[in-house]
């Protein structure tokens, strides 16, 4: 087994236990999409684009009282070490679903009956924690599209490696570590919209990890808001 934490409590990439990888975000990067966002989170490079509210196809899927939310999480074939087939894998199908269910509580879908809102997430390069980075980008893209929301959804994963609770697992920490625990929430509404975990955690360990995840979500939330604000200022300058 690789040693993931050294004697000075530093991780393989030199981070402290509760330190996140560098995050950069930008909104409004695509011309055609109604809203878009780009996120770099460690080695993750992810684009999210939103179309809608628009006409719902096929029509029989339209809902009489709210918009239909569609979501696709997709990884580029070159985004991982071994080439990934472009066809959606079982993992991508599951993630498309849980990302949709993580974003759906925030959107005022009932404002747009009989329409569809489409979210496309393209992972250009994948590192650990791509689902939470995707959620963070997609929610910024929804806001960029001007779709009314109760709050932004923001995600952050925590985990357990070498017996210690740490924030934001990288690829190697996810593979070699004991536990991965991704969380997404709406910070201002005290609502958790995504929670997954794998690997054994005692009751106390879960409590500690869960709290750490929620704290770190707050931190990412500030980056997300700043990116939206900068995007908006750039747009007003153009106009």
């Amino acid at each position: 087994m690789t040693e993931l934490i050294d004697k000075n409590n530093l991780r393989v990439d030199g981070r402290k236990l509760d330190e996140l990888r560098p995050i950069k975000m930008q909104v409004g990067i695509l011309k055609n999409a109604d809203g878009s966002a780009y996120i770099e989170w460690g080695k993750n490079k992810i684009i999210a684009g939103v179309y809608g509210p628009k006409e719902c196809h096929p029509k029989h899927m339209a809902l009489p009282d709210r918009a239909l939310l569609k979501c696709r999480y997709h990884m580029a074939p070159f985004s991982v070490d071994e080439r990934k087939s472009p066809q959606p894998s079982r993992r991508e199908i599951e993630l498309s679903k849980i990302i949709r269910e993580a974003l759906s509580p925030a959107i005022l879908l009932e404002e747009f009956p009989r329409t569809a809102i489409e979210i496309y997430i393209e992972v250009l390069q994948s590192d650990g924690g791509s689902r939470v980075a995707s959620i963070t980008a997609a929610s910024a893209a929804l806001a960029d599209a001007g779709i009314p929301m109760k709050d932004l959804v923001v995600g952050c994963a925590v985990g357990k490696i070498d017996g210690k609770i740490v924030a934001d697992l990288s690829d190697i920490e996810d593979k070699e570590g004991e536990v991965d625990l991704p969380v997404a929430c709406m910070p201002n509404l005290n609502s958790v919209t995504l929670l997954q975990s794998d690997g054994p955690l005692s009751k106390e360990e879960f409590k500690k990890a869960f709290k750490l995840a929620l704290d770190k979500c707050r931190y990412v939330y500030d980056i997300q808001r700043k990116a939206l604000l900068e995007g908006y200022l750039a747009k007003t300058k153009e106009a």
Partner: peptide, 27 residues
């Protein structure tokens, strides 16, 4: 949960949300 009563896997589903307190109580 495993035999030692440790949490081993979690999955939230559905279009709604939980408060952190609800999640801890559920567990």
């Amino acid at each position: 949960f495993d035999s030692a009563n440790r949490l081993c896997a979690t999955q939230k589903g559905g279009e709604g949300w939980f408060t952190p307190e609800e999640i801890l109580r559920q567990m």
